[in-house]
């Protein structure tokens, strides 16, 4: 059970009707390494929920396996920590079964782009109204530092000495090509900016994809310098996926912000308003 954390500062002493970010945090404390970017992402997610004034019980946070996938239990929302790579499938099931719930699927680059890569493509093209957050640190943290699909080809590791020699995956281009309806890049070190983007992503109809650069201080300590590399995207978002794809393919990988906000129709979630009784199905079997 995710008990709401006891308010520890004046930020939590507000009117009961107002939900502060702390209302979305549980009493369970993260096991992430001190310094991990995911702490800030958790904070951004709770800020976004607070901005949208969502009732915690009407939000489901779904994940797979990996460091970042531990996130559901750190929220006071309903959580689903499933198996490796299948978070988008589980989240799709939740949303289709209960369209009125807000579904946020979260995880890492290994979970989402490697073992879950196929689901990523199909979630983009299916365009179910949910938000997918990938905390990308270009490495497998929970299994101790193996290359992921977004790892640079020459990154040396025990499992791939001298590097994989394989080019990195470009999640934003893949998302655009596959039909995601909202594509953004954020940086964990900018929790308020990330919260803004997440709130927009949640509000946007259809499948919203937010790639968050979130440094791994344990296996990729050099990512501490990301803070100096990131910058706001120089141009405003577009609703033209081809233009957005061209931009993200040619940028430096550190453009932050909403890069694409599409107008595709989301996957229909409506159920028949006038369902018939089960007995009526029997007619077709009559010999």
């Amino acid at each position: 059970m995710n008990d709401t954390a006891t308010p520890a500062s004046v930020a939590e002493t507000g009117r009961p009707a107002v939900r502060t970010p702390a209302n979305y945090k549980s009493a369970t404390k993260p096991i992430w390494c001190p310094g991990c970017g995911d702490y800030s992402v958790l904070s951004s997610i709770t800020k976004a929920f607070s901005m949208l004034a969502l009732a915690p019980e009407e939000v489901v946070v779904v994940s797979g396996i990996g460091c970042s996938s531990r996130i559901p239990a750190y929220t006071s929302c309903y959580g689903f920590h499933g198996v490796h790579g299948r978070a988008l499938a589980a989240g799709t099931g939740v949303k289709l079964a209960r369209p009125e719930l807000t579904v946020l699927v979260a995880g890492g680059d290994g979970d989402g782009y490697s073992i879950g890569g196929n689901h990523f493509l199909h979630a983009c093209r299916r365009n179910v109204d949910l938000t997918y957050v990938v905390m990308d640190n270009h490495v497998y943290g929970m299994t101790k530092g193996q290359p992921s699909p977004t790892t640079e080809p020459d990154w040396d590791s025990k499992l791939a000495p001298g590097g994989t020699g394989v080019r990195a995956f470009h999640p934003l281009v893949i998302a655009l090509a596959s039909g995601a309806n909202f594509v953004a890049r954020a940086f964990s070190g900018d929790p308020n900016g990330t919260a803004d983007i997440l709130a927009q992503a949640i509000r946007h109809p259809g499948f919203s994809f937010v790639e968050i650069l979130s440094p791994c201080v344990t296996f990729r300590p050099e990512q501490r310098t990301w803070k100096e590399n990131v910058h706001p995207a120089p141009v405003a978002e577009t609703d033209d996926p081809a233009r957005a794809a061209r931009r993200v393919m040619t940028d430096d990988g550190f453009n932050m912000g909403v890069l694409y906000a599409g107008r595709r129709k989301p996957y229909p979630l409506g159920r028949r308003a006038d369902p018939v009784g089960v007995a009526e199905l029997e007619a077709e079997f009559a010999a």
């Binding site: 489901v60 779904v62 689903f80 499933g82 198996v83 790579g85 299948r86 499938a89 589980a90 989240g91 799709t92 099931g93 939740v94 289709l96 079964a97 209960r98 719930l101 196929n118 689901h119 199909h122």
Partner: peptide, 15 residues
């Protein structure tokens, strides 16, 4: 893989 995880998600949600 998606099928089973989708139905686990849907049933978790109460259906």
């Amino acid at each position: 893989l998606a099928s089973i995880n989708m139905i686990v998600g849907a049933s978790y949600a109460g259906v």
